[in-house]
């Protein structure tokens, strides 16, 4: 269970990311995609926070907004106590050394025109932490670290398999010895057999370098395996956040319950005994999200209040946060 003396490395407060929509000849703003709409959570040093949700719920945007790849519409992101949102230029650039990202698509995330050595060594060059021969040596080390043959350094990405490419991506992320890495669905594009290898690699590295992960996924089972705590996101808002076991065994939010009921359990008897909650309807458009609780349009237990006010994200038991009027 969580202990309060664990150091908070990242603190997100009421973060909002709205993408404007322009129309017409004069490109007037006619609305906005409410991709992330006021979320708050913190991440502790050395832990893995899983962030799950259906595709389009804003989890990837959350990851990118935290890293300031998008300029947030509102809210604060404190990293090691520094508000990233207020940083600009060189200061922000210096902070980037400490936070890196690993992407979902190992094909799109590597520049096809750069060799492995260039790709992995580029961060070192950008931040002037190493030069010439040092870079080469460091690249060799990093490749070895992620389980790749250092002799491959002069090859191009397309010569590698998906799993190998993802290792290259990991090596690149590790190059600057960051403390925090956003893993944006790093395994969902890989074969199942490879997924485990990459997850194991990430876990090993976490242990070795005391890394902190924000692990974004839509796959609940893999998140359960790697995460210490898990946050569930729906339509730009976090619905529930709790310790892994707490969340999986005692989901409180009807959305979490619905999600978990859809996860296959490798025990046919237990699986048969479960009650399935099938969600009806489609996910509403993030351009025009429902009033009050975002989930109310599909919620099996929604009541009048759910449409009137947005539920607070409350801590209902130690470390277990939920945003639902119906949870007492």
């Amino acid at each position: 269970m969580t202990t309060s003396n664990e150091e908070t490395i990242l603190q997100v407060e009421d973060l909002k990311m709205h993408f404007p929509i322009y129309r017409g000849v004069f490109q007037r703003q006619v609305g906005a995609v409410h991709a992330v709409d006021g979320i708050s959570f913190d991440v502790r040093r050395g832990e893995t926070l899983g962030l799950v949700g259906e595709s389009g719920c804003g989890k990837s945007t959350t990851g990118r907004t935290i890293l300031q790849l998008y300029k947030p519409t509102a809210g604060q992101v404190h990293f090691n106590g520094v508000d990233l949102v207020s940083l600009k230029g060189e200061e922000l650039r210096m902070m980037r050394r400490k936070m890196q990202m690993i992407f979902q698509d190992p094909y799109a995330s590597l520049n096809p025109r750069m060799t492995v050595a260039d790709t992995v060594g580029e961060p070192l060059m950008v931040h002037n932490v190493a030069t010439g021969k040092e870079i080469q040596e460091r690249v060799q080390q990093l490749l070895e670290l992620v389980g790749l043959n250092p002799a491959f350094a002069s090859r191009y990405p397309h010569e590698f398999s998906g799993g190998q490419r993802q290792r290259i991506g990991v090596a690149r992320a590790l190059a600057l010895q960051p403390s925090f890495i956003v893993c944006d669905e790093p395994i969902s594009a890989l074969d199942v057999s490879i997924q485990a290898q990459v997850v194991n690699l990430l876990e090993e590295l976490q242990e070795q370098f005391n890394l902190t992960y924000l692990f974004i996924a839509h796959d609940l089972s893999m998140v359960r395996h790697i995460s210490k705590r898990v946050a569930v996101m729906y339509l730009g808002v976090i619905m529930e956040l709790a310790d892994r076991d707490d969340l999986y065994l005692h989901p409180l939010h009807p959305y979490t319950q619905a999600l978990l009921s859809a996860v296959p359990i490798p025990d046919p008897v237990a699986d048969a005994r479960r009650t399935r909650t099938i969600l009806e309807g489609d996910v509403p458009s993030p351009v025009n999200p429902p009033s009050g609780c975002r989930f109310r349009t599909r919620c099996p237990i929604a009541e009048k209040i759910c449409a009137e006010s947005r539920p607070d994200f409350r801590e209902v038991s130690s470390g277990h946060f939920v945003a639902c009027h119906m949870v007492k």
Partner: peptide, 8 residues
């Protein structure tokens, strides 16, 4: 995006 993320 990675290139931006790494501070290029």
């Amino acid at each position: 995006t990675t290139a931006r993320a790494m501070g290029l």
